Simulated assay, not measured.
Amino acid sequence: MALPSPKPADGATLFKQQCGVCHTLSSSEPMRQGPPLSKVVGRRAGSVDGFRYSAGFAKADFTWDEARLDAWLTNPQELIPGAVMAYRQAKPELRAAIINYLKDN
């Protein structure tokens, strides 16, 4: 008897569990430890008004896209030296679910 296929990762649940402690998806909510992530795909890195970024972001000259977000979630300090985000996600399928969720929000 074959085992049932695992359910695909749910980006909303993953965001809430793994990202929501430090980030919101609403610019109307008070900022947390990290900047709000609404409309992050297509946004210039380090550009949320009123958020105090780490020094590494001053040198980050790019716009967030799927590939950059994947690199960021894999190893933030490798993408932006001096970044203070401690979170890392080793599993590609979980990173993809979070990124897909962010694309829609």
Rank of each mutant, 00 (worst) to 15 (best):
Y87R: 13
K7T: 08
S28C: 10
G34A: 06
P35W: 00
P81C: 11
S54T: 12
W64A: 00
L14Q: 06
T63P: 04
V84E: 09
S5F: 15
F62K: 13
G82Q: 09
N105E: 12
S27Q: 03
N105D: 09
P4M: 06
F62V: 10
V48D: 01
F57S: 05
G82H: 13
A97E: 02
K7M: 13
D61M: 08
A45T: 03
L79P: 00
Q17V: 10
K39S: 06
N105L: 09
L73Y: 01
E93G: 09
P35L: 02
T24F: 12
K39I: 01
A58H: 08
A90D: 15
K7E: 11
K103A: 04
P81N: 06
S27C: 03
P36W: 09
K103P: 01
R43I: 04
P76F: 03
P35H: 04
F62P: 01
K59Q: 15
M1K: 12
D49A: 14
K91N: 08
K91G: 02
K91S: 13
R88L: 07
T24K: 13
I98L: 15
P36Y: 14
R95E: 03
F15V: 00
P36G: 02
G50I: 06
P4N: 09
R32M: 13
G50L: 14
M1S: 11
L102K: 04
A55Y: 11
V40A: 09
Q77R: 15
A83E: 05
Q33Y: 15
L14E: 08
H23W: 07
A60M: 08
L69Y: 05
T63F: 13
S28Y: 10
A67R: 11
T24A: 15
V41M: 13
A60I: 03
A90P: 05
K39D: 09
Y101M: 10
L3Q: 15
F15A: 00
E93K: 14
F15L: 07
L94N: 07
I98H: 03
T13S: 13
A67D: 12
F62D: 11
A67Q: 15
G11S: 07
W72I: 00
Y101E: 07
G20L: 02
T74S: 14
N75K: 14
Q33P: 01
K7C: 11
G42S: 06
L3H: 03
G46E: 06
